[in-house]
Amino acid sequence: DVAEQLTPVLLDGLREESLQLVSKLKDSSSSCAVDVSTMWWEAAGCRELCVVTACESSVSLWKPLASDRWGKVYTWQLGEIPVIQIVPLPDTCNLVCIALGDLEIGEIRLLLYSSENDSFKRSLVKTGNIKAVLGLKDRRLVSSSRTVQEQQVEIVSLSETGRSKDGQTLMPPEETVLAFAEVEGMRDALVGTTAANSIVVWNLKTGQLLKKMHVGYSYPASICHRAYSDSGLLFVVLSHPHAKESESCGNPAFRVIAFNPKTARSTGVTFSSLPPGHAGRYLEGDVKEASAAAVLTSGAIAVWDLLLGQCTALLPPDPDPDPDPDPDPDPAGGWALARWATTSACLLAGQRDGTICLYRY
C-alpha cells in the first residue's frame, strides 16, 4: 500500500526513468531530520554502504539488513550546539564529518569508527565562523571562514584514524565563498561560488587563485554543485535558490554553464526548470553525475536529467496521507531533504517528521 501511495508522478512520458520506493527508515527517538547521507562502513572484514541520518542533537549510522530493512548501528550523541549538515568524505570508509552551529557553522567535527578496537569516536576538526565546507577525495576537507578582517580558505587532511594533519591555505577571493565543488578528473582543481555570484578556480597543489569568472546578473546567489573539464571548457552545475521566473526559461532550479577559463566568457548549456504548472521555487537539492534532485517550496521533490534539462520524476508533497487528516495541516508539508547516495541510482528523500525514504532511480 505504501509503495503504491508513493509512486512518483511521471512527466512527458519518460517512464523508463522513475523512482521506485525501496525502503523506509525512521528513528523513533528523533522527530526531525536535519540531513541524510551515505558512507562506507567496514567492520569485521565486511564493507557496506550505510545511511547516516542527523537530527539536531545526534547522528546515527544505519546498516542494511535483509528484506530492504535498516538497523541502527550506532548513535553519536552531540552537545548543545545543533547539527546543521552532514559533510560526507568521498571514497573513504568509516569516516564522516558534520557541521554544527547556530544559524551559521561554528565547528566541524569528525565522526569515525575504528575497526582496530571496534569503537566509535569523534574529534574536532575546525572551529570558526565557517561559511562553506566540502569533503574532498583523499580524506581532505575544504572550508571557507571569515574573521572581521579577512577570509580564510583552508584544506585540512585527515588520517585514517581521524587526526588532522597539516592544513594548507588557498588564496581567498575578496568575496565570501559560499560553496565548493571538486573539478572531476582534475585532482588539483577546485571551484567555488561566491556571494557576488562569481565562479573562482583554485590550484589545490599551489594554493593559487587561478581565475574569477562572473556568472551573470540574471541568477543571483548561484551555488555550485558539480564541475568537470572537457574539451578545454569548464562545465559547472549551479543551483539558483533565488532565481526569478522568466518567460524564456521558466523557473530554473539548476543550470549547466560552460566557462572558458582562459577568457572568463561563458554560455548556458542546459536549464533545468520547475515542472510546468508547478508553483514555488527551488529550496535545496543535490547533484550526482547527470542527475539533480531538489525539494521545492511546495513540499514536492523534483528530479531532473541535467543533460536533457528535463524533469524526469516528481514526488508529490504529501506522499503518505494521514488516514485521519490533521484539521490544521502544514500547507508546505511533505519533503524536506533530497540527497543522492554515492551513485545517482539511489535517492534519499527525507520527510519533515524524520522519515527517510530510499528510492531506486
Binding site: 588564496m171 582534475m186 588539483d188 582543481a189 578556480v201 590550484n203 599551489t206 593559487q208 587563485l209 587561478l210 581565475k211 573539464s229 574539451s231 578545454g232 571548457l233 569548464l234 560552460a258 572558458n260 577559463p261 582562459k262 577568457t263 566568457r265 561563458s266 554560455t267 548549456v269
Partner: peptide
C-alpha cells in the same frame, strides 16, 4: 556554442593559468 562566443579555447587551461597566476 562556438569558439567565437567563448574566445580561444585551450585544452591546457589549468596548467597555463597556473603558470600565469601569482604564486
Amino acid at each position: 556554442c562556438s569558439e567565437s562566443d567563448l574566445g580561444p579555447i585551450s585544452l591546457n587551461w589549468f596548467e597555463e593559468l597556473s603558470a600565469e597566476a601569482p604564486p
